[in-house]
Write a protein that binds this DNA or RNA. Structure first.
Lengths: 159, 159
DNA sequence: CCTCTCAGTTCCAAAAAGGAACCTTGACAT
DNA sequence: ATGTCAAGGTTCCTTTTTGGAACTGAGAGG
């Protein structure tokens, strides 16, 4: 399966992965959420080669995750900003950061802390239910086919 | 930057990406959460080539995300199961699924629905604060250096 | 024996990534 | 007018990673 076949799969993971399922893309998005916006800044922070960076930024713009907006005329220069669609990736990045904090932090401790403006405390992200607001873990979830399902998606066996 | 340099970065995203930042790995994990466990099953569902699958499974086992457990003797056969560390990736997969459901679902609708056993309803995952339990969006979060920080990680500019 | 299943491994061609140099637009200084 | 600088790319060539398909090995079952 090639990249372009991925986005046609009847699976939300496959479709999302067709946009962000690449190590550089994920690192670029991390930097976007840290307010990095310019080509040279990404390059310096990531240690990515320039043509791969150009390629990934182009793809993210095409996917509607980033917008390429001019920040000066003469010479015309552009920067890359998260769109609303891109901002919606925040939970993905937070979940990734949290897993890294818990399972991959060295003894130096976590590199970054997150403060919740609303309550003023340093917090951990918790996944919760949109209906009852209770915490959700892997074992609390029953997966069922939805309207866009292909029957082959589910593995069969009940949970 | 090569893969093996990634895990040494002082960034939880980089470290997590060194384990799961590959499209096949993410799709393998999706299937793991759908109770797929055997080599042939992964291959059939994913359309991945066999040696890449073998490679990714080996890496996930080495990373402690999956465990290779025998399910029959004579001939000895193994299956791959999520460890607790692997189960902790559930929020990452849920966040990815949800983004795909919202931004990439065709008009057929979402392929899978998730029911919260505790309350019995189909739900969407919401990221919330471990301290006050309130919802958390990108703009609610203030990022600060933690004990394991390198100063270069933050982009500078206040949020 | 012969064939089948599962779980891999091997080999070769094709695609993607790394590295370094080059290009373009315009500002600013000499 | 010539030279240098900065930002944001592009080009070219080499090394790495994938894709695809065939082969291996340990039993089971006829």
């Amino acid at each position: 399966m090639r990249w372009n076949e991925l986005k046609r799969e009847a699976c939300s993971v496959a479709r999302t992965v067709s946009v962000i399922g690449d190590r550089w893309t994920l690192l670029i998005l991390r930097d976007c959420f840290l307010r990095v916006r310019r080509f040279e800044m990404f390059e310096a922070r990531l240690g990515i080669t320039r043509h791969i960076l150009a390629d990934r930024l182009r793809k993210l713009v095409k996917a509607g995750v980033l917008a390429r907006v001019p920040y000066q005329a003469r010479p015309r220069r552009y920067e890359y900003r998260l769109t609303d669609k891109g901002l919606d990736l925040h939970p993905v990045i937070m979940a990734i950061v949290h897993w890294g904090d818990v399972h991959m932090a060295g003894k130096a401790g976590r590199p970054l802390l997150h403060e919740h403006r609303a309550c003023g405390h340093v917090f951990d992200p918790v996944l919760s239910c949109s209906v009852c607001a209770g915490a959700v873990t892997a074992r609390d979830v029953l997966v069922r086919p939805g309207p866009g399902a292909k029957s082959s998606l589910l593995a069969g066996e009940a949970r």
